[in-house]
Design a protein around this nucleic acid. Structure first.
Ligand SMILES: [Mn+2]
Ligand SMILES: [Mn+2]
Length: 664
DNA sequence: GGGGCGA
DNA sequence: TCGCCCCAACGCGTA
DNA sequence: TACGCG
């Protein structure tokens, strides 16, 4: 098949007036022409690269189309990352653009699926459609893709006649913009035509990277990349620099990419002055940049790195004219001045005084400093609502952990902590953090913990009050400790049977399975502490002696879990495939007993409405009346006062594994 | 929540 | 000074 | 060796 160059759009400055225009979303992905015949599928980018290998699901869909149509086809469209069944932003495609490893491609196909949104048809069998008006081509395309697939990797692009409405939808859904097309226009391969208008609602375009600057402080590899575009004389004009928008990974990738291209002299016609020491490169990497506006002197305001584009050649990168975007409005600041907190002195942890100090700080504006046995700790935003349903604040959470400190601290002593942080409360999205922040005060315990490979990673280690309250200050709601201690991360000191109710399993089913576990434990002469998970499950935890490797803990849990599942196949399963589990069964998960895996620790609050707590139980409390929702931040401290620390009591004596082993 | 970064 | 952005990633069982 | 799972 002969290669065709795609038709290109001109930047539109306003919505075109008059009839005869149609409007499509500006899909935010990779523009490709799809060549399909009985033998082959090619997905050719504007740069002439074939991306078929990277997007097998699209190739399969096109093959299936060819099987039905039984004729060669050439489609024009955009490869778009899909997120929850709807088109996502270009960033989501990043991970797939450059992958060449076959197994990685196969994995990504499901992990981050993509679709080809077809918006034009250039060849239909022997019939060339490029000279036909858009209207006719669209009709052929729609007929070809009948019925329109909604879940497939090949979809018909949206189109509408109402430009205003399409633009509103675009703004609401955070699209990049809208493409206006003349309904009676033919397809002009390779031309940037005025019959297609690109209406951009945000400032975004490609730039050529001409170098990078040294990082400052704790930043790694690269401070900022230096950006430019070509003017009509072929001069590379410096347009600004940006260091935001990178993940740790994309920053490292950019560094590797640029380091290979380093050269002595600046590629810019006029060498820019940079804040940090510059490194110059051959101008061959093209990046997509989002920015607020062009400044008066032709620089970018607030540029943000979006991704690398290898589907555009550097020479194509020019200063694109303004479209219909307006500079984003500055959001009003919501922070308020900080106030000095109450300072108190104590060598011993004086819990009552600490509770008072936290209350004072919360009432006095939320920010302050507390005095702990390990030293001072800054806290802030204690008045922020973390649990909207119950109106409990970050201060409430911190006071809870102070109250249970005598019980939770020994339980997490020497254990690496994984944080799931919710700086804005349970209603907003949280994020995991493994690494100890570089800026952690030296009152908190940070240690270099051996990784799986030959490296180490700085992690927070539990056991003291400063570290506990520091992670809460960072927005961690639950406390998630490793099953092993820093002294010996390869050896677990407890083994966990994790009862996870399936979607249709009531809590009473969990109770039944917990009983079944208890029966097996009794038979094997093992003892364990049951606790609510704080969510909808139960954890049953067996203390181990020293010297049990992680896989020993797993094997023990596996043995018990398997026996439980075999004896109670209707209500308990160890089947890992969700689809194969019996309806309403409880998943008896023994696979949490693995290095660096965590379950919510004992006495940990969970990031769920109601601030429920993972609470140790007496076996006789596990009955039909048990309601895990009763154990909350408010009810657990008085419960401990009343019945004591069931965890410490139950975990004191390690199990003897002799009986288990002799059993075969 | 807090640091790096841009402006 | 403010606004924006990032902040993880793997071993296992099954086929 | 790949895929789904937590
Ligand atoms: Mn669980
Ligand atoms: Mn689980």
């Amino acid at each position: 098949m002969k290669a065709i160059a795609p038709m290109l759009a001109t930047i539109g400055k306003e919505l075109p007036r008059g009839d005869g225009w149609v409007f499509e979303p500006k899909y935010d992905g990779i523009r490709v022409l799809a060549y399909v015949n009985g033998r082959d599928v090619a997905l050719v980018t504007r740069n002439g690269l074939d991306k078929a290998r990277q997007f097998p699901e699209i190739v399969d869909a096109l093959r299936a189309l060819e099987q039905r149509a039984k004729r060669p086809l050439v489609l024009d469209g955009e490869i778009v990352a899909m997120h929850g069944g709807v088109p996502a932003r270009f960033q989501e495609l990043q991970g797939r653009m450059h992958v060449t490893d076959a197994s990685a491609i196969a994995h990504l196909r499901d992990a981050s699926p993509s679709s080809l949104f077809a918006f034009d048809l250039l060849l239909d069998g022997k019939k060339t459609l490029v000279t036909e008006p858009w209207r006719v081509r669209r009709k052929h395309l729609a007929a070809l893709l009948q019925p329109p697939g909604r879940t497939s990797a090949l979809r018909l692009s949206d189109v509408g006649e109402n430009g205003e409405a399409m633009l509103r939808t675009a703004r609401r859904n955070d699209w990049e913009g809208v493409i206006a097309k003349r309904a009676d226009a033919s397809y002009e391969p390779g031309r940037r035509s005025r019959d297609w208008l690109k209406l951009k609602i945000e400032h975004r375009q490609e730039f050529v990277v001409g170098g990078w600057t040294e990082p400052r402080n704790t930043r790694e590899h690269i401070g900022a990349i230096l950006l430019g575009y070509y003017d009509s004389n072929g001069d590379l004009i410096y347009a600004g620099h940006t260091g935001t928008g990178f993940t740790r990974k994309s920053l490292l990738e950019m560094y590797h990419r640029l380091a290979k291209l380093e050269r002595k002299s600046s590629p810019f016609t006029t060498t820019p002055k940079t804040n940090e020491r510059p490194h110059w490169t051959r101008p061959s990497v093209v990046v997509e940049i989002k920015f607020n506006e062009w400044t008066g002197d032709g620089k970018l305001r607030q540029p943000v790195f979006i991704g690398v584009r290898d589907d555009k050649s550097p020479r194509e990168v020019t200063h694109e004219p303004e479209s219909i975007a307006k500079p984003a409005k500055r959001a009003r600041s919501t922070t308020r001045p900080t106030r000095a907190g109450t300072k108190r002195r104590s060598r011993q942890p004086n819990y009552a005084a600490l509770l008072d100090a936290l209350t004072d700080i919360e009432r006095a504006g939320g920010d302050g400093e507390i005095e702990l046995p390990e030293g001072a700790l800054d806290v802030s935003h204690l008045d922020k609502i973390f649990f909207p349903e119950t109106k409990q604040t970050k201060g409430d959470l911190m006071r809870y952990y102070v109250r249970v400190a005598p019980y939770i601290l020994p339980a997490i002593a020497d254990r690496p902590l994984v944080m799931k942080r919710f700086p804005n409360g349970v209603a907003s999205k949280g994020f995991f953090q493994q690494r100890a922040p570089a800026e952690a005060p030296d009152t908190v315990r940070v240690e270099a913990v051996a990784d799986v490979g030959l490296r180490t990673q700085d992690r927070l280690i539990g056991g003291d009050l400063a570290t506990l309250l520091y992670v809460v200050q960072l927005g961690a709601i639950s406390i998630d400790p490793w099953h092993s201690r820093v002294q010996s991360v390869t050896r677990a000191d407890y083994s966990i049977i994790d009862l996870d109710p399936g979607p249709r399993a009531p809590f009473s089913r969990v109770v039944e399975v917990a009983h079944a576990v208890k029966d097996v434990l009794d038979e094997l002469h093992l003892h364990a502490v049951p606790k609510t998970s704080g969510a909808s499950g139960v954890h049953i935890v067996l203390p181990l002696g020293r010297g049990v490797p992680n896989d020993g803990a797993r094997t023990l849990a596996e043995l018990i879990a398997t026996m439980v599942a075999e004896r109670n196949p209707k209500i308990a399963t160890v089947e890992r495939s969700v689809g194969l589990r019996p309806r309403g069964a409880v998943y008896v998960d023994y696979l949490q007993n693995i290095r660096a895996k965590t379950v919510a620790g004992v006495y940990s609050v969970r990031a769920r409405p109601g601030a429920t707590v993972s609470t140790p139980l007496r076996w006789n409390e596990i009955n039909e009346q048990l309601d895990p929702g009763e154990f909350t931040m408010d009810t657990v401290p008085p419960r401990i006062e009343k019945i004591g620390d069931l965890w410490a009591r139950g975990m004191k004596a390690p199990n003897s594994l002799a009986g288990v082993l002799t059993r075969g």
